[in-house]
Amino acid sequence: MAGHEIGMAADPHGLSAMLVGPLLYHATMRAGSVSPRLIEQLIDSLGEWHGTPSAPAGPGQP
């Protein structure tokens, strides 16, 4: 995400496991979908985000 940086809570391999594990669990063991709220919680758990969110680019904007 442009304009954002993260102070990671773990190494990249550990962060990958933290993200993929719950997604696989919900998709396979529970045979369900992953809620947007869970995805948000997973991303927030990666570490401390710095910067301000930018508005999504509209059509024709980079």
Rank of each mutant, 00 (worst) to 15 (best):
M1D: 13
M1P: 12
A2I: 04
A2Q: 13
G3N: 06
H4D: 07
H4G: 05
H4S: 14
I6Q: 03
I6A: 04
G7T: 15
M8E: 14
A9D: 09
A10M: 09
D11N: 10
G14R: 07
L15Q: 06
S16E: 06
S16M: 05
A17F: 11
A17Q: 13
A17H: 10
M18C: 04
M18G: 02
L19V: 08
V20D: 01
V20T: 12
G21N: 15
G21T: 15
G21W: 10
P22D: 05
L23G: 02
L23Q: 06
L24M: 14
L24N: 09
Y25N: 13
A27I: 05
A27N: 05
A27P: 00
T28L: 14
M29Y: 05
R30Y: 03
A31L: 08
A31Q: 10
G32R: 09
S33Y: 04
V34T: 11
P36W: 01
R37L: 15
R37G: 09
R37K: 14
R37Y: 12
L38D: 14
I39F: 12
E40T: 12
E40D: 14
Q41D: 12
I43V: 14
I43K: 02
D44G: 01
G47A: 06
W49M: 03
W49T: 02
G51F: 10
T52F: 07
P53F: 05
P53Y: 04
S54F: 04
A55F: 05
P56H: 07
P56C: 02
A57I: 01
G58Q: 10
G58P: 01
G58W: 05
G58I: 03
G58D: 04
P62S: 06
